[in-house]
Design a protein around this nucleic acid. Structure first.
Lengths: 151, 151
DNA sequence: CCCTAATCAGTTGTGCACGACTTAATAGCG
DNA sequence: CGCTATTAAGTCGTGCACAACTGATTAGGG
């Protein structure tokens, strides 16, 4: 910023200089904005993400769900139990490998997809980015995730 | 939906199209990367953010801390209690307004700042963004937060 | 001056997140 | 074939987040 023009941005201890805080604050703000929309579907935000995966690919293992969402089984197991209690999905051991559990949508879970269709447009509108900004920030976030997850 | 070039990005139900998921995944990945660094300081990530604020402005109220970090007192109160138990700060009712509680660093808490100085450069390096990318993503994240927090 | 409304910090209950661990089942090497 | 290492899902403990609420205190209008 001031003197040394290093290859990196200044790295102070000021809160508002921290990219990590901008990320953390934005993530929580966006989740908060989703909440009323998802309340109408009876879902929390992480539950909504699980349903997104299932609407794309039904009958997925807990393991593959964890890979898609980057979540541990210790997070997913209780969450899936709640979605099962809500009658949105079923869990059954795979006969060909009894270690694995297949997650399948119920009719009710599959039907919820239609009502969920209104959510992404509403949120896109709330975020108020141009398509170019949306694409740019998505790409940069993936770059960060990739860089930070490696080594 | 597929063809029409509307003013917004496509709004499907595919997980990987969702900006919200990119945000959520990046935020958790970054926090995870911080964890070993902060473990050495004996801090969690939200505790680290609180300390950042206190290193900037000592003797701050719980309310103003909440404004800075966009966190509720129901989140901050237990967190501050843990930091007080760790001897990093003290809480005392303000004589001039007994509703308010002033948070003050202990010597130990103030001293931790030096060791924390290594954290932002290490994380900046891990994220691996150019200064331009860093600035761009910070600006976009603030725009999202601002848009989504309004109305 | 009183008294009602607003403000502040904190408690409680629910649901993530994640590390450390457990249990069960399978893979694959000798 | 037998045995050990690996894998899958789940439990448990800790610490956020946040809504709904409580209790104490102060502000400000009538």
């Amino acid at each position: 910023m001031s003197t040394s023009a290093g290859s990196r941005a200044e790295q102070t201890l000021l809160l508002d200089d921290q990219l990590c805080f901008a990320l953390y604050a934005a993530s929580r703000a966006v989740t908060a904005r989703y909440r009323p929309l998802l309340d109408e579907l009876g879902l929390t935000y992480p539950q909504y993400l699980v349903m997104l995966v299932l609407w794309e690919q039904d009958s997925i293992s807990v393991r593959d769900l964890g890979t898609a969402l980057q979540l541990e089984s210790s997070t997913l197991s209780p969450l899936l139990k709640r979605l099962e209690a809500a009658e949105l999905l079923r869990r059954e051991r795979r006969p060909e490998d009894e270690r694995s559990v297949a997650i399948r949508l119920t009719e009710e879970g599959a039907a919820l997809r239609e009502r969920a269709g209104a959510v992404p447009p509403a949120m896109g509108n709330a975020m108020g980015l141009t398509p170019e900004q949306d694409a740019a920030v998505k790409q940069l976030l993936r770059l960060i995730t990739s860089n930070v997850t490696a080594g």
